[in-house]
């Protein structure tokens, strides 16, 4: 098991390195001036020259990439003399536009995105599984059809539309919720959750719909398995048949998708954060792309890749717990 884990972690590191190289290549090899972009629109030519030297753009690409990667582990000093910039471990580059190391920007915004992702995930898992389970067990009934129609509508609605509708109904008309204004959890869980409820619902309504459909399909397939017939033939309560024998198997594909979705969202839900003005990684990404702040884009890309590969590893480990056949493979 330890060997397996080490092997998998090494694979994760390899994937991250490749993603890093590709992203690096995209931004630094393209026929544009990374220094001008990194510095921003208001930079004077002298400042651009200084940035270019600090970014090491006068050196070969492989050296630049090597510097970037080693900087992650050792930290680095960008440029020299009085204008040198200290970028401490882990150094993911420096955002000249924000006048902050990328790592500081990321760690600043990460709690917001993590709060958003985890809360929404809890909601959509609960909702999606419940709806999918009921629809599967009442397959073919009016209830099943209306639930599936609702999930189709919910999954088709773009995030910004759902967000606007929720704001309009729950905040403007009914005044049940305040307009979201992010509060860190350190200021009290109630304020934190209360202000995140709308973004959670927005994200969850999209994902829950997909999970409901997935759960329904998976559950219908599982309940047709011969071992379900065996469970019934043993005289088990239908409740036990459905949960212990049916749902446990039906969850397997859902775990896979859940890992991917959660991993992707941890590095920021760009649209949702933007619509609700949440200061998360998604918002940072949005601004960085808009202003072509390449060090930040690179950092965010790596962060997203890190979460997704990590989530995948998590999924595989959970698999081994769920399905004993994986353990021996």
């Amino acid at each position: 098991m330890t060997r397996y884990l080490l092997r998998r972690l090494a694979a994760v590191a390899g994937v991250l390195l490749v993603i890093c190289a590709v992203t690096f290549a995209v931004f630094y090899v393209l026929p544009s001036d990374p220094a001008a972009h990194a510095c921003g629109k208001t930079c004077t030519p002298e400042q651009v020259t200084l940035v270019r030297a600090q970014m090491g753009l006068d050196r070969p690409v492989y050296e630049q990439f090597g510097g970037y990667v080693t900087g992650i582990f050792t930290g680095r000093v960008l440029g020299d003399g009085p204008t040198a910039l200290e970028c401490s471990v882990p150094c993911f580059g420096y955002s000249y536009q924000n006048a902050l190391p990328v790592w500081d920007l990321l760690t600043d915004r990460l709690p917001v995105s993590v709060s958003l992702a985890l809360g929404a995930a809890a909601l959509w898992l609960a909702g999606g599984l419940a709806v999918g389970l009921v629809a599967a067990l009442r397959r073919g009934t009016a209830l099943d059809r209306s639930l599936m129609a609702a999930t189709l509508a919910s999954a088709s609605a773009p995030v910004y539309f759902t967000a606007m509708m929720l704001l309009l109904i729950l905040v403007q008309r009914l005044e049940w919720l305040p307009y979201p204004d992010y509060r860190p959890i350190s200021e009290g869980p109630a304020a934190w959750a209360g202000n995140l409820l709308l973004p959670w619902m927005t994200l969850a309504s999209l994902y829950a719909a997909m999970y409901a459909r997935l759960t329904r399909a998976s559950m219908i397939e599982t309940m047709a398995e011969p071992y379900i017939r065996t469970a019934r033939a043993k005289g088990l309560y239908e409740r036990t048949v459905v949960t212990k024998h049916g749902l446990r198997s039906a969850l397997t594909p859902i775990v896979t998708i859940f890992g991917m979705d959660l991993g992707g969202l941890l590095a920021g839900a760009v649209i949702t954060e933007h619509v609700f003005g949440l200061p998360g990684v998604g918002q940072l990404t949005y601004d960085a792309i808009f202003k072509a702040d390449q060090p930040v884009v690179l950092g965010v890309t790596l962060l997203a890749a890190f979460f997704i590969t990590l989530a995948n590893l998590g999924v595989d480990l959970v698999y081994a717990v769920i399905d004993p056949r994986v353990r021996y493979a």
């Binding site: 071992y227 017939r229 065996t230 198997s249 769920i322 004993p324």
Partner: peptide
């Protein structure tokens, strides 16, 4: 009690 044709798929894999 009942036993079935395919004993692998008739037993729960987990």
């Amino acid at each position: 009690a009942m036993i079935f044709q395919d004993p692998l798929s008739s037993l729960h894999p987990f």
